[in-house]
Nucleic acid binder design. Structure first.
Lengths: 226, 226
DNA sequence: ATAAATACCATACATTTGTATGGTACAATT
DNA sequence: AATTGTACCATACAAATGTATGGTATTTAT
């Protein structure tokens, strides 16, 4: 997992609280904090930070954290373990692989490897083990999922009628609304131009990959040319 | 903040790892864990849990946690403080107020109070101090924001050209793409049917509320009637 | 009727953790 | 030349934390 530090403080209406630039080492420590929070979901203790950077004692880390806090990048509650808060978490992005493309209209080939990377804001937390797929095609446009959207897929999730799932059909993947009826599975498009796909439950060429637990679409910053 | 516990284990393809039902108290403790993680962003220590429930020592909490872990709802690393992980975090929802409605097309009145509540999945982390607004109207449909979508608004965020912002114009709120040009502010719709709104920077009837940092749209479970 | 699970209590103990203090070395600034 | 900031080290200590053990009372299941 690669984390990218996006320093935005110098933008037009820059944040007031970030008073000074971080040194290289302080920057590395801040990145580690973000990494730990996104990955492990809890902030590290001083000892864990020291271990990671090879420091022989916690005092070194302690002093670095004090410096980073003085400069306004983190906040911590005194005496409380693992209480480091990242001041402006939404300004940081984590680089996440997109595992393939998936057809919302007609089936498309699914790639075994990473095809692209997305800068996912750290505020968008992904369930563990879930992965990202980019949607192509417009058969789900009535469910407001569009070509280019990135869907968060949780594998082996429970399947409920009416849920949007990712399924493999003869080595191609589709995003459809799932419906089980009279012992056979129907995969619906929201777009009425596409007819439902009907499969027998035991069809060996069919497999449910997982359910779509969320979508992500980049919101900010579009160049206005006029 | 009110948290709602959604017990999903008994759904058709129930998860395998959740072996037994929790008792009432165990349930309350699990809810507290979720509450703490979503709110404070870090799991509580045994002492903090004991304090919250009025227990006189940590051992009581310790035994409850062991029971909850035995039943598969949480996992924790031995000897490590604040290392409780919620096994299937994406199954829980947090109840969050929607503060008002906002027009993406023509301006609408913004309500001072909560108008509705949404069940936001705990995987969608909101930046602190941000709030939710429901979008009405279709002027942003080319940016794929639709009537009914819930936008996450971060107040006082830095304003960058091309960013989507919530602004107040004569006591009504709009969602538009922000653009500053030659000393005056332009608010663009993606939908070409609407013309840009142009305001002078110092116009007292105009105020930027914040920037849209994300959208959320309920994905799962739609009743298929056929 | 007995066993097992639940729901607490008290006490004890080894680590972990945050923090304070003092020291060395080096680079940049004043 | 003196000061400040950075980047480490070592040691010490109180508080926080997780854990183990043993006990009591109540409810639930066998």
């Amino acid at each position: 997992m690669v984390f990218i530090f996006v320093n935005n403080w110098n933008s037009p209406n820059g944040s007031v609280s970030m008073s000074k630039e971080l040194t290289e080492i302080q920057n590395k420590i801040l990145n580690f904090l973000i990494e730990q929070k996104v990955g492990k979901r809890i902030p590290p203790s001083l000892a864990e930070i020291a271990l990671h950077f090879g420091y022989k004692n916690r005092a070194t880390v302690q002093q670095h954290l004090q410096a980073i806090e003085r400069k306004g990048y983190i906040k911590k509650k005194p005496k409380l373990s693992r209480s480091i808060e990242i001041t402006s978490e939404e300004l940081y992005f984590i680089s996440r692989p997109i595992m393939g493309e998936v057809a919302a209209g007609n089936p498309l080939t699914i790639y075994p490897d990473t095809i692209d990377t997305i800068q996912l804001p750290t505020i968008v937390k992904m369930p563990s083990q879930s992965f990202l797929l980019r949607v192509k095609g417009d058969s789900l446009k009535d469910a407001y999922i569009f070509s280019g959207d990135v869907v968060i897929v949780k594998p082996d999730a429970e399947l409920v009628n009416g849920q949007i799932v990712v399924a493999i059909l003869e080595d191609a993947a589709v995003v459809k609304r799932f419906c089980i009826k009279n012992g056979s599975i129907e995969l619906h498009s929201e777009n009425s131009e596409y007819k439902p796909i009907v499969i027998e439950i035991n069809d060996p060429k069919f497999k449910i990959v997982g359910s779509v637990v969320g979508i992500y679409r980049t919101m900010g910053k579009k160049i206005l040319d006029n």
